[in-house]
Write a protein that binds this DNA or RNA. Sequence first.
DNA 1: GACCAGGCACATC
DNA 2: GATGTGCATGGT
Length: 220
Amino acid sequence: MDTAATLTAMHQAMGRHFGPLHWWPGETPFEVMVGAILTQNTSWKNVEKAIGNLKAAGVLAPHALDALERQALAELIRPAGYYNVKSLRLKAYVRWFVARFDGDAAAMAACDWRGLREEVLSVKGVGRETADSILLYGCGLPVFVVDKYTWRILSRHLLINPEDDYEAIQQFFRDHLPAEVALYNEYHAQLVNVGKAFCRPTARCAGCPLESFEHRADEV
DNA sequence: GACCAGGCACATC
DNA sequence: GATGTGCATGGT
């Protein structure tokens, strides 16, 4: 089985196991963008609390967040951790989003993803995974999101080298899967679900939908 | 109580 | 250019 066929078979196996995942868990594109920043190195459970606070305060909208004091924002997002740096990052992103698109996600989504990715990456506090999550899940653009789980699962299944960097892993998917938004969306969501449930740094594999695929026995 | 969580920027060598 | 460190809450 070649690489493309393996990736497709894995997608199908995960699909049988999890069913449709309906990602990203957010009601609006802007909520997705905010969540993408808040979830940096943080469990989604904690992010949900922070987003709940923003909704309750009536500030989960571009212009409202742009107008909010940084310190007040930090207090609202406290449950998501790193609240001081994340308040700065959120403010920086929202400032850009309002200045560039007047907070209009549809206008943003109409851009070519290549140039847009560079622009988003230029915002301080927005790295590659955050930018790509915003582009794929917030804007519906065909950009594969790579994260720690993606790296770990592909490494353990011998599809990439553990030394491969972000761009190399992203290129790997571009090379072996059709560039379809729905497919990229579902695939990344499936990898995160497998990662959470079966592919932890220490615990692994028991009952994993990818268990039958070739994998290494040692830790990665 | 240690470890981990859907990263990122910055310092230092 | 590679490697290390700070940021912080909350669940297991």
